[in-house]
Computed example of a mutant assay.
Amino acid sequence: MPTPTDLQEAFLARGYVADDALATALRLVVALGKPLLLEGPAGVGKTEAAKTLAATLGTRLIRLQCYEGLDAQSALYEWNYARQLLHLRAAELGGLGGVTDEDLYSERFLMARPLLQAIREEQAPVLLIDEVDRADDAFEAFLLELLAEWQITVPELGTIEARTRPHVILTSNRSRELSDALRRRCLYHWTEYPSRAQELAIVHARLPGVNETLAQQVTNAVHALRALPLGKPPGVAETLDWAAALVSLHADHLDAPGIRATLGAVLKLREDQLLAAPTLQGLAAQAAAGRPPGA
C-alpha cells in the first residue's frame, strides 16, 4: 500500500503537486475504504486529484457528474428500450412466438451507468462523484444508502453486490451545504488555492521547459487577480492555460500585448476582464520595469 510520500512522488510524476495533508487523506481512502469529500473553490484541482489517484493505482476512473435533477435511476442503470423494441420486432418477423419479460429484461439490454459500473468492476476503481453539491437532497440520501451497503437492487434482475469496494472521491464547490449525515460518512479535506510556490511548481510540472521568468510572472499575476472581487476567479487550470497560451506565442515574459492577446485564457467573464484591467496594466508595467508582476 503506498505511503503518503509515495503518493506525492507518483502524483508529481504525473504533473500534480499534492501537499502532505491531501496525500495523507488519499492514502486513508485506500487504507480504510472510506469515501473522501474534497471541498473547496472551483478550479483548485479536486477532480484532477481523483483522476491522478486512479492513474497512480493503475485502476479505472469512473466519473458521475452531478447536476440538478439527477436521480438514482440515471446514476445506476437504464434499459436499452430501442434494442428491446428491435428484439421484439425481430421475434415477430421470425415467428419465434412470444417474448417473455425474462428475455427483455436481461443483462444484454441493461445499460450500466456510473454507480452500477463501479459496483461491477473486478478491480476496485476510483469512483469520482463530481460536484455532489449540485444534486438535491433526495439523491444525497440515496448516496448515503449506497455508501453504507454497496449493493443495489434491479427489480428485474435482483440484488447486485459490489465485487470490490470502490475508492470513492466526492467533490463539492460548496454551492449548497451538504448534510451532516453525508459528512459523517466521509473523510474530509478542504482544498484551497495553492500557494505561489506550489502553483509555480505545478506550472513547471505540467509545462516542462517553460521559461522561468514567464512561469513566475504568470503565477504571481494569477495570485494578484485572485485578490480581486471577481465573479469567476482563475483556478489552477486557468494558470496552466494562460502559461501555455503565452508559450505558444513564443513569449518569454509577461507584457501588455501578450496579456491582451491571451486574456481569454485566464478570465472567462467580460465583467471580470473590465474589473481586472487596471491590475493587469499595473502587472504589465511591473514586468516592463523588471519587477515580478504581483510581487
Results as ranks from 00 to 15, higher is better:
residue 32 L to R: 10
residue 247 V to M: 15
residue 170 L to C: 06
residue 67 Y to N: 07
residue 112 A to P: 02
residue 122 E to W: 00
residue 58 G to D: 06
residue 138 A to D: 14
residue 69 G to T: 11
residue 274 L to H: 13
residue 118 A to W: 09
residue 244 A to P: 00
residue 92 E to L: 11
residue 119 I to A: 07
residue 129 I to R: 09
residue 247 V to D: 03
residue 84 Q to G: 04
residue 26 L to S: 02
residue 99 V to K: 03
residue 242 W to H: 04
residue 116 L to C: 00
residue 109 F to W: 00
residue 245 A to K: 07
residue 179 S to G: 12
residue 9 E to A: 04
residue 31 A to R: 15
residue 204 H to E: 07
residue 47 T to L: 10
residue 79 W to A: 11
residue 240 L to G: 01
residue 281 Q to A: 15
residue 235 G to I: 13
residue 26 L to V: 02
residue 215 A to W: 06
residue 215 A to T: 06
residue 61 L to D: 13
residue 57 L to G: 13
residue 175 S to D: 09
residue 239 T to Q: 00
residue 205 A to E: 03
residue 15 G to V: 00
residue 112 A to G: 05
residue 42 A to V: 15
residue 156 E to N: 07
residue 97 G to I: 05
residue 115 L to W: 06
residue 54 A to R: 03
residue 11 F to D: 02
residue 189 H to N: 01
residue 49 A to H: 09
residue 257 P to L: 10
residue 77 Y to H: 13
residue 140 E to F: 05
residue 264 G to K: 07
residue 239 T to P: 03
residue 160 I to S: 06
residue 15 G to C: 03
residue 84 Q to R: 12
residue 24 T to G: 14
residue 73 Q to N: 13
residue 225 L to K: 12
residue 7 L to A: 04
residue 206 R to E: 14
residue 36 L to R: 11
residue 28 L to K: 08
residue 222 V to T: 04
residue 93 L to A: 11
residue 167 H to T: 08
residue 93 L to T: 12
residue 78 E to I: 04
residue 38 L to C: 02
residue 29 V to T: 12
